[in-house]
Design a protein around this nucleic acid. Structure first.
Lengths: 191, 191
DNA sequence: TTTTTAAAACTAATGGTATTAGTATATTAA
DNA sequence: TTAATATACTAATACCATTAGTTTTAAAAA
């Protein structure tokens, strides 16, 4: 045990995520976080390495949460069903935790290995789902990039208010997943 | 003519874009921009409405530039060829102007009509390209959302360093576009 | 040519932010 | 009861956006 309890790290991350979800990642300041935790800003430096460190911690926390959600949503499913639910859980997470999701996809530096690892876990989860499609290794990786682009692009554009038209978002999502699955199926049968 | 020339607005936007491209949008401060323009920060308030106004101006400028690039790249092309080049020019713009592109896709408020309009122009350009596919109106709009999600997601993940693996980005992009075209083709033939 | 005018530049000042240095405190372990 | 140490604190600095008020400058009017 520590000589003084201090702030719980998980509580710090959850509070930071709350602020980011409510007001946007840009509004997550050390001052605001400290205020909500009932502490002075400099005290936070005992737990995170400044604002940059807080962002990095949130990136990791967000990716871990995203991976967890996706993992649970595809448990017991396979094939198209798994693919569909992987996308749905991805988009659902981004929609329900916009600030944390934004933090999760902040640019990462090559030396941030722990973050890289969680990203790799997500890639491997998707690769696992794609096994039934019997793709070559490079094809599978291209497919994962396509899947991630689709889910991230949709989530990101939605949050940015770029889908302003009066047209169901859920229908669009179902449509695009189907286009992807059809494209992949056609690609496979052509070989 | 004005009673005093002052800073050229286009030059202001270009300089701001340069800074954003080089150091990231978050590093574009009024202080930095003023410094590069050889002027004091408060003077910028004669040209833009603070940092928020600068961001809004960059959003518009970025979207206009993106639309212009796409328009030129699909001139004289049609069908799959046009579709492919629309995606390629989109991703190319995002890659070569990361800061300006990031600004272009900042969240927009409903009252920013001029920005909305340019966004609509991009949507209409894509709808035009999709005419040969004879889609219903709602299908066409879902398709445009899919296209934009793919292009934005790919560009955004690329910039964020999420495509770390040693695998050709250009190959992934070509693969992704082909999956989309195949999926759309299959969707059409099924009706 | 001289005067007027208005936009654009400036200085000065304020408040908010991150960050660092150094000090006080509280809790565990000896 | 005391010593050690992680944590929180205050104080201070530097940078930033922003506002208010003043000065400058170039074009238009006289």
């Amino acid at each position: 045990m520590s000589p003084r309890p201090g702030i719980d790290r998980l509580q710090l991350l959850q509070t930071a995520a709350e602020l980011a979800d409510r007001d946007g990642l840009h509004a997550l300041t050390l001052a605001a976080l400290a205020g909500k935790l009932g502490v002075r800003s400099p005290s936070l430096y005992n737990h995170v390495d400044g604002l940059t460190g807080l962002h990095a911690a949130l990136t990791l926390y967000g990716l871990q949460t995203l991976h967890d959600r996706m993992l649970k949503s595809v448990a017991g499913r396979s094939g198209e069903d798994a693919l569909r639910h992987a996308c749905l859980s991805y988009v659902d997470f981004a929609r329900s935790h916009p600030g944390l999701y934004e933090a999760a996809l902040q640019p990462i530096r090559p030396d941030q290995q722990e973050i890289q690892q969680v990203g790799d876990q997500i890639v491997e989860l998707l690769l696992q789902i794609l096994v039934p499609y019997q793709l070559s290794q490079s094809e599978a990786l291209h497919t994962v990039r396509t899947l991630r682009s689709l889910c991230h692009g949709f989530s990101s554009l939605d949050r940015a208010g770029q889908f302003a038209l009066d047209l169901s978002l859920d229908d669009s999502l179902e449509f695009m997943i189907q286009i992807f699955i059809d494209g992949l199926t056609l690609h496979k049968t052509r070989q």
